[in-house]
C-alpha cells in the first residue's frame, strides 16, 4: 500500500482502473467509515483546498454526499446548480469550464446529463475532476461505494455473483458496476426486459437474463436499478404494475436468490415499481442505507487521493 500511486489526474470512470486502484480506494475508505462514526469527524487533509460541486442535473443525495465528504476533510465546498443558471442563459459547457477554472478550484465534482460531458470538461480545466455521473455512461463513486458495501458485508468481492436488475439501458450505475465487479472477479448478471437492455451488453462481460427467476438463481447480491418515471408508461415498459409483476423485487422473487442474498439500490427508490417495501426495508437483507453511509467514506477517499499531490496548476494567462 505504501508504494501505491494513483496514476490518474481525474476520476472519470471505473473503466481503466486496475484492481489495485480499486482496492486502494476501498481500503482508504474503510478508514473513513470508522472516522465518520466518531463524534469528531473533521480532518485537515484538504484544508485550503476548494471543491466545487458542479451539477448540471438535479441531485440531492450525491451532491450532499460529496459536500459532506469535502467538508469533513477540511475543504471549502461550493455548490453550483448549473442546470438553473448558466445553461439556461445559453453558456456552453466549455465556457462554464473555463469560468470555473479561473477560480482555481482544486477539485471539480461534475454531474451532467450527457454521456462524455464530464470528460470533455476535464480536458479544459487544470484541477482534478470527479465524475458524479455523466448521462448513461459512468458513475464511478457509486460503483466504489457499492463495492465497499458488499465487501464489508461479504468479506470479499471475488467469487460472488451479482445480479443487476432493471433499466440497464439508461443506467450509468450499471455500467460502472459492471466494470468494477468484473475487474474484481465478481460474476455479473443483468436481468431486464429486452427494451431496457442496450445492444451487445454481453460483450461487457455479463450474463443476460430476461426472467427474474432465472436471473436471480443462486446470486449473492441483488442490485435493483431505478426506473425513471418517463419510461414507465408505455415507451419502454407498459405500466408500473406489469413492471413490478415481472421485474420488481419482492419476497417471492427474492426466494430465487441465495438464502443469504443481500439487496442493494442506488436510490432514490420507486417503491412498488422496481422494489417492494417489505424487501427494501428488511434490515437483515437490505443494504440500501449502508450504501448511503459508504458513499461519504468512498468520496472522502477519492477526494483525498486526487488532491493529495495536487498543486493549483499554472496561472491563467
Amino acid at each position: 500500500m505504501d508504494s501505491y500511486a494513483y496514476r490518474h489526474r481525474h476520476l472519470l470512470g471505473i473503466e481503466g482502473l486496475t484492481p489495485e486502484d480499486i482496492t486502494y480506494v476501498l481500503d482508504l475508505a474503510e478508514t473513513y467509515v470508522d472516522m465518520n462514526r466518531e463524534a469528531e469527524k473533521k480532518k485537515t487533509t484538504l484544508r485550503g483546498r476548494t471543491l466545487i460541486n458542479c451539477f448540471f442535473e438535479n441531485s440531492t443525495r450525491t451532491r450532499t454526499s460529496f459536500e459532506v465528504a469535502g467538508k469533513r476533510l477540511g475543504a471549502d465546498v461550493i455548490n453550483m446548480a448549473v442546470a438553473v443558471s448558466s445553461m439556461k442563459k445559453g453558456e456552453t459547457l466549455i465556457d462554464t469550464a473555463m469560468t470555473l477554472n479561473a477560480m482555481h478550484p482544486d477539485v471539480l465534482v461534475v454531474r451532467h446529463p450527457e454521456s462524455g460531458a464530464v470528460q470533455l470538461l476535464s480536458e479544459k480545466v487544470d484541477c482534478a475532476v470527479i465524475n458524479a455521473g455523466d448521462g448513461s455512461h459512468e458513475h464511478p463513486t457509486q460503483a466504489l461505494l457499492d463495492a465497499l458495501t458488499i465487501r464489508r458485508r461479504k468479506g470479499k468481492l471475488g467469487g460472488l455473483t451479482v445480479a443487476i436488475c432493471g433499466d440497464v439501458m439508461h443506467s450509468r450505475v450499471a455500467r460502472s458496476n459492471i466494470w468494477l465487479l468484473n475487474a474484481m472477479g465478481t460474476r455479473v448478471r443483468v436481468v431486464a426486459p429486452r427494451t431496457l437492455l442496450p445492444a451487445e451488453i454481453e460483450h461487457l462481460g455479463v450474463e443476460v437474463f430476461h426472467d427474474m427467476a432465472e436471473g436471480l438463481a443462486d446470486v449473492d447480491i441483488v442490485m435493483m436499478l431505478r426506473l425513471q418515471n418517463e419510461r414507465m408508461h408505455g415507451s419502454f415498459v407498459p405500466s408500473t404494475r406489469e413492471y413490478f409483476h415481472f421485474f420488481g423485487l419482492d419476497e417471492d422473487k427474492l426466494k430465487f436468490a441465495k438464502p443469504d442474498a443481500l439487496i442493494m439500490h442506488p436510490g432514490p427508490m420507486n417503491r412498488g415499481v422496481e422494489i417492494g417495501s417489505t424487501v427494501a426495508d428488511d434490515i437483515d437483507r437490505s443494504l440500501i442505507r449502508q450504501q448511503v453511509e459508504m458513499g461519504v467514506a468512498v468520496r472522502m477517499a477519492c477526494l483525498e487521493l486526487l488532491a493529495r499531490d495536487l498543486g493549483n496548476g499554472p496561472p491563467i494567462k
Partner: peptide, 15 residues
Amino acid sequence: ATKGMHGKELTEIGL
C-alpha cells in the same frame, strides 16, 4: 400491441 391501438405506448404484453 399499443394502448388504444394508437401506435405509441406498449400494452401490458406480459400480463
